[in-house]
Computed example of a mutant assay.
Amino acid sequence: MIAASLQSGVDQLGEFIAEAKVIVPFTGAGISTETGIPDFRSPGGLWTRNRPIPFDEFVASQDARDESWRRRFAMEETFAAAKPGRGHRALASLYRAGKIPAIITQNIDNLHQASGFAAGDVIELHGNTTYARCIGCGTAYDLGWVKTRFEPQQRGPDCSACGEPVKTATISFGQAMPEDEMQRAAELSQHCDLFIAIGSSLVVWPAAGFPVMAKHAGARLVIINNEPTEHDVHADLVIRHDIGQTLGPFVRN
């Protein structure tokens, strides 16, 4: 598949959207970069600056838990300042219009909810960094609770209910994917007529399988990403341009 120019891509995407009855977007970190939140893999991304802390290391090491929380609070101003970008707002417009029943996302920044999606219609494959959860009993905590306990000694807190470690409500490397969310994502992928992958490198499996699943079920597949992906060959339309510029024309107040 040869990538379309920006204008021809926007025009063709508009035709696909007009013709579609059920659209399922699948979003990755690229949709949030214009809001000031860095992605993970590109030069200057989060993983080029800090090695990811695997789940088993978080569980086994207090030092790893402390470092994990130091990194999270170092990013607090960035996450707090971020507002939905043009891509988020365009998808929210299609959601309000009844074209999108729910959205699948690899993102952890809560920006789809902030753009207007109901929380129950945001399928978060990798969790959410705007609150915390006990890895034992699952008790949820707001970040303010964590921060008041972390700051005095720079020590990651334990659950007040069961004593197990508390971590951001995200899915770390080596941690089991959320079964309910994966099942819902699979069902949506198989029952849409337009699947739009936006800002994802499509290399993290099993989540990267959803675009192909949708294509095999008969949906049109659109991929919007600055860099090529291994799924481009399956796509009906590939747009390798800025996501905000590409989706901006679809923002409706």
Rank of each mutant, 00 (worst) to 15 (best):
G138F: 05
R149A: 04
L143Y: 07
A114V: 08
R89L: 15
S93W: 09
R89K: 15
D193P: 06
L111N: 02
L111P: 03
I123N: 00
A97V: 05
R96K: 13
F79V: 13
A92S: 11
H191V: 05
G87L: 11
A207G: 00
T129M: 09
D180T: 15
Q190H: 05
S160I: 15
R155W: 00
M213I: 14
A186L: 06
S93R: 12
E187S: 14
L202H: 04
M182K: 01
I104R: 00
G138M: 01
P178N: 11
C159S: 05
F117L: 03
G116T: 07
I196D: 03
I196M: 12
M177G: 09
P211E: 12
G138D: 04
Q175A: 06
P84F: 09
R89F: 10
D109M: 07
D180E: 13
G116V: 03
L111V: 07
I103V: 07
P206I: 10
C134P: 09
Q154K: 08
V122Y: 01
D109C: 09
L194S: 08
V166K: 05
E187V: 14
R184W: 10
M182F: 06
F210H: 11
L202C: 08
I196G: 06
A97C: 01
H191E: 07
I196K: 04
L194V: 14
A186N: 03
G144Q: 13
A102K: 03
K83R: 15
M213Y: 01
G116N: 05
Y141T: 00
G136N: 04
A208N: 05
T168R: 13
G136C: 02
V122S: 00
W145K: 02
P84D: 10
G85N: 08
A97K: 15
S160W: 14
W145P: 04
T129W: 05
S200Q: 07
P211W: 13
G136T: 07
G87R: 11
P101N: 10
K147F: 14
Q190C: 15
Q154M: 08
V146M: 12
E151S: 13
G85V: 10
